[in-house]
Simulated assay, not measured.
Amino acid sequence: MELNGYRLLLPEGTLEYFDLVDVKESVNEVVIYLEEKNIVPEKYTDQDTESKGFYDPVIV
């Protein structure tokens, strides 16, 4: 499945920290699956960081 078009639905900068791994379409919804990249933003490299997980899925 070609995922490039779905990039346009995401907020700018999202794909700097996440990979678009899958999309499921139905008549009523589009579900976009993201996987967090294991990188720390440059401005936080001198600090200890910890992933806190994700919010509940959002259906648009």
Score class of each variant (00 low, 15 high):
residue 45 T to V: 14
residue 52 K to R: 11
residue 29 E to K: 02
residue 54 F to V: 15
residue 14 T to P: 02
residue 37 K to V: 02
residue 37 K to H: 03
residue 3 L to F: 11
residue 45 T to D: 04
residue 15 L to W: 01
residue 34 L to Y: 00
residue 33 Y to L: 09
residue 2 E to P: 14
residue 32 I to L: 11
residue 23 V to P: 02
residue 45 T to M: 11
residue 56 D to A: 13
residue 19 D to H: 03
residue 4 N to M: 10
residue 55 Y to G: 09
residue 45 T to Q: 14
residue 57 P to C: 06
residue 58 V to C: 10
residue 34 L to C: 09
residue 28 N to Q: 08
residue 1 M to G: 15
residue 40 V to N: 05
residue 24 K to E: 10
residue 28 N to W: 09
residue 7 R to L: 13
residue 21 V to D: 02
residue 57 P to G: 04
residue 59 I to V: 15
residue 18 F to R: 00
residue 31 V to H: 03
residue 55 Y to L: 13
residue 21 V to C: 12
residue 55 Y to K: 10
residue 59 I to C: 10
residue 41 P to A: 11
residue 55 Y to E: 06
residue 55 Y to S: 14
residue 26 S to V: 10
residue 3 L to R: 03
residue 45 T to S: 10
residue 34 L to Q: 00
residue 50 E to R: 07
residue 58 V to N: 07
residue 26 S to Q: 01
residue 19 D to N: 01
residue 53 G to R: 03
residue 21 V to L: 11
residue 37 K to T: 03
residue 27 V to R: 13
residue 43 K to F: 08
residue 15 L to S: 12
residue 28 N to Y: 14
residue 9 L to Q: 07
residue 14 T to Q: 04
residue 48 D to L: 07
residue 50 E to L: 11
residue 2 E to G: 12
residue 24 K to H: 00
residue 4 N to Y: 08
residue 45 T to K: 15
residue 36 E to R: 15
residue 53 G to W: 05
residue 49 T to G: 06
residue 20 L to N: 02
residue 1 M to R: 06
residue 26 S to A: 10
residue 14 T to D: 02
residue 9 L to K: 05
residue 46 D to K: 14
residue 8 L to F: 13
residue 52 K to I: 15
residue 36 E to W: 02
residue 57 P to Y: 01
residue 1 M to F: 11
residue 5 G to C: 08
residue 51 S to G: 06
residue 22 D to M: 06
residue 59 I to W: 12
residue 55 Y to M: 12
residue 12 E to H: 01
residue 14 T to H: 03
residue 59 I to E: 04
residue 9 L to W: 10
residue 24 K to L: 15
residue 60 V to L: 09
residue 11 P to C: 11
residue 41 P to R: 03
residue 6 Y to V: 05
residue 25 E to M: 12
residue 55 Y to I: 13
residue 29 E to Q: 03
residue 23 V to E: 02
residue 29 E to A: 10
residue 58 V to I: 11
residue 26 S to R: 04
residue 59 I to Q: 02
residue 38 N to K: 15
residue 6 Y to E: 02
residue 54 F to T: 14
residue 56 D to G: 05
residue 59 I to M: 11
residue 51 S to L: 09
residue 32 I to Y: 01
residue 31 V to C: 13
residue 41 P to C: 09
residue 42 E to N: 07
residue 52 K to Y: 07
residue 49 T to N: 04
residue 17 Y to H: 08
residue 23 V to T: 06
residue 26 S to G: 08
residue 28 N to C: 03
residue 50 E to T: 15
residue 18 F to C: 07
residue 32 I to H: 01
residue 54 F to G: 02
residue 16 E to F: 05
residue 15 L to E: 11
residue 44 Y to P: 01
residue 5 G to R: 11
residue 7 R to T: 01
residue 7 R to V: 00
residue 4 N to I: 13
residue 26 S to M: 07
residue 17 Y to Q: 09
residue 47 Q to P: 02
residue 20 L to F: 08
residue 28 N to S: 12
residue 37 K to I: 05
residue 29 E to P: 14
